[in-house]
Amino acid sequence: MKKTWFITGASQGLGLEFVAQLLAAGHNVAATSRTIAGLEKAAGTHPNLLPLQVNLTDESSVETAVSDTVAKFGAIDVVVNNAGYGQLGALEELTDAEARANFDVNVFGALNVIRKVLPHLRKQGSGHIFNVASVGGYTGAFPGWGVYCATKFAMVGFTESLSYEVAEFGVKATVVLPGYFRTNFLKGTSLAVPETPIAEYTAVRKSENMHTEDIDGNQGGDPVKGVAAVIEAEASGKAPLYLFLGADAVGMARQKNEFVNNEILAWEALSTATGFGEN
């Protein structure tokens, strides 16, 4: 069945792979990027492709993109909030401006898309929103990734609430939590480092070097297979609320579940002795 997909962050990485696979499968694709030139250079041209220059932090820009998509294709069936970037740095190192900038794109940019697309999805009584977070939105056990993880934890939280809010309208929501996929995410164009690093944070520097020097280019996740998995989940009509991608993501999620369960068991007596009448 031919559908119209609205993809953000479509000029590179997973977003660009979504564009390629969806067009090959005969779907309509509205693809957003910060510049039309960069998007067309990466994705080329296609009768079913609508390239859109969008500033995701500007509500009017997002609204125009959504309206242009509906005007061209008649509807929007699937939304993929994929745009975002990584911010390295210990919480003490990062300035207010650095932290807010990461939230502006990763969190508020996605919320702008959701806010502008939902009137159309509600009216048509169908649709599916996929918010691409990270396994770092499920476990924060990554020194130097606190702000980035916070943006992705936020995405996990609002996606879960969203799924309950829009169910009555026939609209679905899924949060995608990838592990390490071999894209350019760990390169300069997608990864910001702290402006004023603090030398004492040796664990953070070690993590930073490990990601930019050792992991980059050696990620175990295949972007082609990762994107295909999301498309398959959507086509099934039964996509889960939480969709982990990659054996590493699944393993880290299980470790987090076990850790939290052990914490609950160890502290259950104290945790539950807080009601009126409890001794």
Rank of each mutant, 00 (worst) to 15 (best):
A141W: 13
G109P: 14
T272L: 05
A65K: 10
M210P: 00
S33I: 03
E195G: 14
L270V: 07
I7S: 11
H211M: 15
S163C: 08
T57E: 15
E232G: 13
N131A: 01
M1D: 13
I76H: 02
A37H: 03
L243G: 07
E63T: 14
L39R: 02
N82K: 03
D58Y: 04
N102L: 14
A269F: 05
E213N: 14
F73C: 08
D68Y: 00
K256W: 03
F73E: 13
S11A: 15
L186T: 06
F244A: 08
N131F: 10
E258H: 05
Q219H: 02
G170H: 00
T64L: 05
M210N: 14
G86D: 09
A30L: 11
E17K: 04
G38T: 01
E92P: 00
A173R: 01
A31L: 07
A90M: 04
D214K: 08
A273R: 12
V70I: 11
T274Y: 12
L177A: 06
S134A: 13
A24S: 09
L91P: 00
I198P: 03
A239C: 11
V113F: 07
K225C: 03
I129H: 00
A20Y: 07
K225R: 13
T189Q: 14
P143M: 13
E208W: 04
A266P: 01
A141D: 07
E17W: 01
W267Q: 09
W145Q: 09
V105T: 15
K152I: 11
S163H: 09
A25S: 11
I129G: 01
G220D: 03
V135N: 09
D77G: 10
V175L: 04
V250A: 07
A101Q: 15
G89L: 02
A249Y: 10
G74Q: 09
K152T: 11
A42V: 01
A65M: 06
K206R: 12
A42D: 03
A273N: 07
D77F: 05
I198K: 08
K123T: 15
V250K: 09
Y138D: 12
P51W: 00
V132I: 15
F73K: 13
E40Y: 02
L121H: 02
A42Q: 09
R182S: 15
A192G: 11
F153I: 03
K2E: 14
Q12K: 14
L49M: 04
R122H: 10
F103H: 08
N106Q: 11
K72A: 06
Q124H: 14
Q21D: 09
E234I: 13
L191C: 11
D77M: 09
V260T: 14
E200A: 09
K225P: 00
H211R: 04
S271E: 05
D77E: 12
T95A: 07
N102W: 11
L88Q: 04
V117H: 03
A43L: 02
F181D: 04
A154T: 05
